[in-house]
Amino acid sequence: MVLLSSYFSEPLPPSIDSLLNQREKVRQRFPPSHRSPWRMSRRAVLFSTGDTALACFYRIYQFIVVDWNVALRNELEYFCIMNPDWAVADLPDPADTQDPARYAVLAGITYLLCEAFNRRIELGLPRDAPPIVEDWEELARRPKVLERVPAWAQRVPPLENVLRIPNSKGRYVEEGGPEVCEPFRKLNILMHQPHIHFV
Rank of each mutant, 00 (worst) to 15 (best):
Arg43Glu: 12
Leu46Thr: 08
Ser48Pro: 02
Ser48Trp: 07
Thr49Leu: 14
Gly50Ser: 04
Thr52Gln: 07
Leu54Lys: 11
Ala55Glu: 08
Ala55Asp: 06
Tyr58Val: 02
Arg59His: 12
Arg59Tyr: 13
Ile60Ser: 10
Tyr61Asp: 00
Asn69Glu: 15
Asn69Lys: 15
Val70Arg: 15
Arg73Lys: 15
Glu77Trp: 13
Glu77Gly: 10
Met82Arg: 12
Asp85Ile: 01
Ala87Lys: 15
Ala87Tyr: 11
Val88Met: 00
Pro92Ser: 08
Pro94Asp: 04
Pro94Ile: 03
Thr97Leu: 08
Thr97Cys: 03
Asp99Cys: 03
Pro100Cys: 09
Arg102Tyr: 06
Ala104Lys: 08
Ala104Glu: 03
Val105Thr: 02
Val105Cys: 08
Leu106Tyr: 01
Ile109Glu: 10
Thr110Met: 11
Tyr111Arg: 15
Tyr111Cys: 15
Leu113Glu: 11
Cys114Met: 10
Ala116Val: 06
Leu125Ile: 14
Leu125Tyr: 15
Asp128Thr: 00
Ala129Arg: 02
Ala129Thr: 01
Ile132Ser: 04
Asp135Trp: 02
Glu137Asp: 13
Glu137Thr: 05
Glu137His: 08
Glu138Thr: 04
Glu138Ala: 09
Glu138Arg: 00
Leu139Asp: 00
Ala140Cys: 06
Arg142Pro: 02
Arg142Asn: 01
Val145Trp: 12
Glu147Ile: 09
Arg148Trp: 11
Pro150Lys: 12
Pro150Ile: 05
Gln154Ser: 13
Pro157Thr: 02
Pro157Phe: 06
Pro157Glu: 09
Pro158Gly: 10
Pro158His: 06
Val162His: 11
Arg164Leu: 09
Ile165Trp: 10
Pro166Phe: 08
Pro166His: 02
Asn167Cys: 10
Ser168Phe: 14
Arg171Ser: 13
Arg171Pro: 05
Val173Ile: 11
Val173Gln: 11
Glu174Gln: 13
Glu175His: 03
Gly176Cys: 02
Pro178Asn: 01
Pro178Thr: 01
Val180Glu: 04
Val180Asn: 06
Phe184Gly: 01
Ile189Gln: 06
Leu190Asp: 07
